[in-house]
Design a protein around this nucleic acid. Structure first.
Lengths: 207, 207
DNA sequence: GCCTTTACCGTACAGCGGTACTATAAAAAC
DNA sequence: GTTTTTATAGTACCGCTGTACGGTAAAGGC
């Protein structure tokens, strides 16, 4: 069996296992042994691919961000009319709100890491500051294009609108995860937000 | 020294210590010993007032919610013109965004608990569902009054607006805590949101 | 064909964390 | 004044967790 093995793939496999454990039992339940069991390998192998737990945890975070990136990029590419800002923002909302189990797991683990980062600043640097900033810039661009096209009001600050969109989605996402709201209700709120953004005077669907 | 002692006060003292530890080092760093040290008492006393750690953690959460309640009520009462919805919502924003150290600590610990609750549903019940729901109802009432008074547009859904306010404040609050944004920027976003709510056509302050 | 490297295993060790047990003075009860 | 309760202390135990150490068999290099 000891033939040559793809380290990157093994590490990804382990990181995935960590994310599954964290999503199921919480990040506090992530232990070397639990991750090893979830990955179907021995404790020692986890140690073999990640010298220390800190490295493992950190790598899993980067892995998570990378995955999120790919999901987002894939969804953007699968848009039939990627030109319209509305479709783009709808896609963002669909991606951001924890509807299916996968996105629920992702957002749960991500938020867990965010809480960790609040008291461990060096963990935060890249993923929690640069990541969201990049997303905000993307959204800002989309909004700016829509504004130039006259689709959203000229007096709006597209940069703040991007922040508002991102922060609101994080907020409702959290409320879904703690069980205060259903994913459907969250989507309703986000669609309402988009409707207001596009100055849609239609208040609500008829009862 | 063993004279009669106010248990409720002792428990509150310990809960405060727990919150301080959690705010400084994270909820994962909260141990019986750490709390005891922070509270300036022996490990055994903490055990004496809270039989088990689960009880301690749960009690501290209730304590935190109670404190938050009182802070919010106090701020509402200190309003000079509590009738106007705008003032009320400004107060909400000022309370919700982690500006000073106290509110930063509160929001950090609260969010930590929220993450715990995501994988421990019985922890969530009262504080994370009923708490925010109550706040949302309050905000909804305020908005409904403002709407009847003609201060905000008639076609808005005051209930969703309340949700939007709360969720947005949580979202930007989190972004402040992870260091992505300053509290000032967060306040800017919230004020922008209020301005849009009140259909204030003024886009931004002049540069 | 030999030796090094690589992928893996089992186990052990040390530290920490929650909990339990025993003790002890001061107050309260009677 | 004795007895019981109450608030406190110290300490010990056990399980879990991260990490380290020693071993092993297959593959690859030369």
């Amino acid at each position: 069996m000891p033939k040559r093995v793809d380290h990157a793939q093994r590490r990804a496999h382990i990181a995935d296992a960590l994310v599954r454990v964290a999503a199921r039992d919480g990040l506090h339940a992530v232990t070397m042994r639990a991750v090893a069991a979830e990955a179907g390998m021995s404790l020692n192998l986890v140690q073999y691919y990640f010298d220390t737990k800190a490295q493992l945890v950190h790598s899993a975070l980067l892995h998570l961000e990378h995955q999120s990136h790919e999901r987002w990029a894939a969804r953007l590419e699968s848009l039939n009319d990627p030109e319209t800002a509305r479709a783009c923002l709808e896609a963002f909302v669909a991606e951001a709100v924890p509807t299916d189990e996968a996105s629920r797991a992702f957002r749960l683990v991500w938020t867990s890491y965010a809480v960790l980062a609040m008291t461990d600043p060096e963990l935060a640097e890249q993923p929690f500051i640069e990541g969201p900033n990049r997303l905000e810039r993307q959204l800002t661009e989309v909004l700016a294009r829509a504004q130039k096209a006259g689709r959203i009001a000229a007096h709006l600050d597209v940069s703040i609108e991007a922040t508002r969109l991102l922060s609101l989605s994080h907020g409702v996402g959290t409320s879904v995860l703690v069980g205060q709201r259903s994913a459907t209700q969250a989507l309703e709120v986000m669609h309402y937000h988009l409707a207001r953004l596009f100055s849609d005077p239609t208040p609500l669907e008829a009862p």
